[in-house]
């Protein structure tokens, strides 16, 4: 903001008004982002009676954990956590392996039909996922595989976005690298696995973040594929909680806190990787 810098530079303007306004707006934005989370946490420790007091108390009069206990006794939290974590794990694993292989082939190898096949990848990227949902559901029903981990992972067995993204990454690596490896006697697989793949670590990290965020947030597919409470994810489990405690907000907030916990913990630990990974998925696409 150059106007602001000008204000600062002016000799008889000791108070940089522009800069103060800038910070005020940025801070107001940050408060808007944080207050809903804060209010969720505070409500989750209040009794139902206290939560509907007017005017509201800000801090709980007494910090109680009964809401959490009730959520845990209503929902199979252990299953929801492990289902969600495994779903994310498998999605990341499969997307990284298959997309790396295909991305490398599309970027560095020449073979008849390559453009046509890459066209398929691009087309899938543009189509709304819901267009595939009913047939995918029917396939699983036919295989008797609904209400399973396989069903949760199913639509993400391969990743069109990952393939596209890694192809862009491999495109930006110099061809000479591969040539040099070949002269040294590496075959195509070795060139890929030993030389090129290690160079895409940052991109793979970004793909992992991207995949995790969307697998964890997805609601429609888990709702459809796994209707058995023990096979649900955190997101679809929350919809059950909503149905049961329609207006008991402290309970709903406790459920929301529990559902957010794993991602918040991951995010605090890998904040930089999250933010930079997302930025990378945007600049490559």
């Amino acid at each position: 903001m150059t106007t602001l810098q000008n204000t600062v530079k002016r000799p008889h303007a000791p108070v940089p008004v522009g800069k103060i306004v800038l910070y005020a707006v940025l801070l107001a934005g940050a408060v808007t982002m944080l207050v809903p989370f804060l209010w969720m946490i505070l409500t989750s420790f209040k009794s139902v009676g206290e939560s509907i007091r007017v005017p509201p108390t800000i801090l709980p009069a007494r910090w109680i954990t009964i809401n959490y206990k009730e959520v845990i006794s209503t929902l199979p939290m252990f299953n929801l956590y492990s289902n969600t974590i495994l779903l994310i794990f498998f999605r990341i694993l499969l997307a990284s392996i298959f997309s790396s292989m295909a991305g490398y082939a599309f970027a560095k190898l020449r073979f008849p039909g390559r453009n046509l096949m890459f066209g398929l990848v691009l087309a899938q990227n543009m189509l709304p996922a819901q267009i595939f949902i009913i047939p995918q559901y029917l396939m699983l029903a036919k295989m008797n595989a609904l209400n399973s981990m396989f069903a949760l992972v199913f639509p993400g067995l391969v990743s069109a976005f990952g393939t596209f993204f890694l192809r862009q990454t491999y495109m930006s690596l110099p061809d000479d690298l591969g040539e040099a490896a070949r002269i040294d006697g590496c075959n195509q697989w070795q060139t890929f696995y030993r030389i090129m793949l290690p160079l895409t670590k940052t991109a793979l990290m970004a793909l992992a973040v991207f995949t995790a965020v969307f697998a964890y947030g997805d609601l429609m597919w888990p709702l459809i594929a796994n209707t058995d409470l023990n096979k649900m994810t955190l997101a679809s489990g929350l919809s059950v909680l909503r149905g049961q405690f329609t207006t008991k907000y402290p309970l709903l907030m406790a459920g929301s806190v529990l559902a957010m916990l794993p991602m918040i913990v991951l995010y605090s630990a890998f904040q930089r990787q999250f933010v930079e990974g997302i930025a990378l998925t945007g600049t490559k696409a």
Binding site: G29, W39, S51
Partner: peptide
């Protein structure tokens, strides 16, 4: 930047619950 991004990592299902509570008519 990290604070602004925070809601993005949370499942929309959880976000919807929190906002439903914030929007509650009475309380």
């Amino acid at each position: 930047r990290a604070i602004y991004f925070l809601p993005m990592i949370v499942a929309p299902a959880a976000i919807a619950m929190v906002w439903k509570w914030l929007y509650n008519t009475e309380y």
